[in-house]
Amino acid sequence: MVHIEVDHVGHRYGQGALARQVLDGVSADLTESRIGVIGHNGSGKSTFVRMLNALLIPSQGVIKVNGLDTASEAKKVRRLAGFLFTDPDTQIIMPTVAEDVAFGLRKSGLSKPEIAARVDELLERFGLSGHREHPAHLLSGGQKQLLALASVLITSPQLIIMDEPTTLLDLRNARMIGQVIGELSQTVVLATHHLHLLDDFDRVLVFDSGRLVADGTPTEAIAHYRRLMEV
């Protein structure tokens, strides 16, 4: 189980006249296994989920993941928490499918056959076995996102943070990725505009103009979000 503590977190970009407060006074104590994050573009939700993985260090307040402060123990936090980005094209690092999945294990001390076995297992699970040696950029959009997820799962993180992973996909692939997310045994924090993905979630946070404006069950939170849209 993963415990995320968010304590009076704020974030400001830039200096002087160009400064923008993108997150302000956010506090939450998250222990659920399915947590959704919703809000308009520019509401601060992307900034927020980036902070959970120490990709961004808050300029005010503290975030702790399982007691680890993201500011001082960023590498440990990242080992615990994998991150799935919106655009699968920018998160594939290595030229071929198998090499990319194996990337996270290059310093694990595992032998080559052991790494290959784990890669094969994940490719099998996501139906990518036939593409083992293919150049990663030739996969379809949905397959690329599956590859990205496999590359995250290879290091066995306890928490997977996702920033709009279905936004660039067509409906069929978005549904497929949604199904895969539902089957994960790990804790998931999912920022998304595809509200139906959150139906079975335990808790949903709503962001608006950098503030956490609602926090509750999917039904309550989505109702609040819809009211925001009408204003």
Binding site: R50, K75, F85, D87, Q91, I93, K107
Partner: peptide, 17 residues
């Protein structure tokens, strides 16, 4: 912008470890 995103992904996937 893509380079920023790739940089984020490199950091998230432990490139600097």
């Amino acid at each position: 912008r893509d380079a920023d995103a790739i940089g984020d992904a490199l950091v998230a996937r432990g490139f600097d470890d």
